[in-house]
């Protein structure tokens, strides 16, 4: 019996913060509804990640280890997760609102004839759900009307599930025979970086169109990013202009982040960018236009030429860190 099934995404043999947030949301649903939990891990060679998932408070872990699951291909993954939910009699299926979760969870919902709420940020005691709509300008309260309910969870909405006192059991399961797909994985061009992932980082420094070129991201912004030990992000304008790769985009249609410190450099603060970072604990804005909307949400605003201010800031931070 496991009524709340939590899908565990993993990368490079580890659980990203978003998966721990999905566990936290699943545990909260289970607590509110008086249900038990299970996590499901899919992939090739998943023993380590299954063990890690088992350490964070779930009732048990189902691990499906199959070469066909090496890459997250939507039709196959949806069938595997839906099959698992059916077998366990799950009434809730929970995943993270990551690129993968957004991609295949609606298929899970369809296969289970379930309603789905995307990118949820809150759970009410009456079973209703809160999720942002209209690029974060509206918080909608919704209810899922079907016996089985599927949700993806915004990575900033819950504190990651901490380690539990004891680890749950890991059960191996086989990919159901009827789980076949018509999609073929071709390649993955990973953006290599030694910096923390955007959605995991305690500090994020993002650049906008004000940086003027991709080269300036490297020469002007990166020294500040690195002295702060931060992740680097960007506005949609900067990504659209080709300054940096798409996976750095922070905003409603990109990544949603809520770090301890968010530094917006040369970003005007379009609605859709604010939707991706306004839950950050402390926001710093550096922009030469004192009327830019980013200053309406920033805790500390500096009206200055970024090409002068950013190198200065890197130097100041270095001085403090040297003490």
């Amino acid at each position: 019996m496991a009524k709340v099934l939590i899908f565990i995404e993993h990368a490079h043999g580890k659980l990203p913060k978003t998966s721990l947030v999905a566990i936290a949301a699943g545990l909260e649903i289970a607590k509110k509804q008086g249900l038990d939990t299970a996590a499901v891990v899919l992939g090739k060679g998943v023993d380590a990640v299954a063990a890690e998932a088992a350490a964070h408070g779930v009732g048990k872990v189902i691990a499906i280890d199959d070469a066909k699951l090496e890459h997250c291909v939507a039709d196959l993954y949806a069938k595997a997760v839906a099959g698992c939910a059916k077998q366990l009699g799950s009434t809730w299926v929970v995943g993270a609102a990551t690129a993968a979760g957004k991609d295949f969870f609606p298929r899970v919902a369809q296969l289970l004839d379930a309603g789905m709420a995307s990118d949820i940020t809150g759970l009410n005691d009456d079973g209703s759900i809160v999720r942002p709509t209209y690029a974060g300008n509206v918080m909608s309260t919704v209810s899922i009307e079907t016996p089985v309910k599927v949700v993806t969870v915004r990575g900033t909405a819950f504190d990651p599930a901490p380690k539990a006192a004891s680890a749950a059991a890991v059960e191996k399961a086989a990919l159901p025979a009827d789980a076949t797909g018509r999609m073929r994985f071709v390649s993955f061009n990973e953006t290599k970086s030694d910096r923390p992932a955007l959605t995991d980082a305690a500090i994020v420094v993002s650049g906008g169109r004000g940086l003027k070129s991709g080269e300036n991201f490297t020469t002007v912004l990166e020294p500040l990013v690195d002295v702060l030990g931060a992740a680097m992000g960007a506005s949609r304008a900067a990504v659209d202009a080709g300054f940096v790769p798409n996976d750095l985009q922070v905003g409603q249609t990109g990544k949603v982040v809520a770090p301890q410190l968010y530094v917006a450099v040369g970003i005007s603060g379009a609605i859709q960018h604010l939707a991706g970072m306004k839950d950050s604990k402390v926001i710093v804005a550096i922009n030469k236009d004192g009327d830019a909307p980013i200053f309406n949400v920033s805790d500390y605003g500096l009206v200055a030429d970024l090409f002068k201010a950013v190198p200065e800031m890197a130097d100041e931070v270095k001085k403090i860190k040297a003490h």
Partner: peptide, 10 residues
């Protein structure tokens, strides 16, 4: 466009 890079499927 996926987390961490670009993926190709066919």
């Amino acid at each position: 466009e996926v987390d961490g890079g670009l993926e190709q499927v066919a």
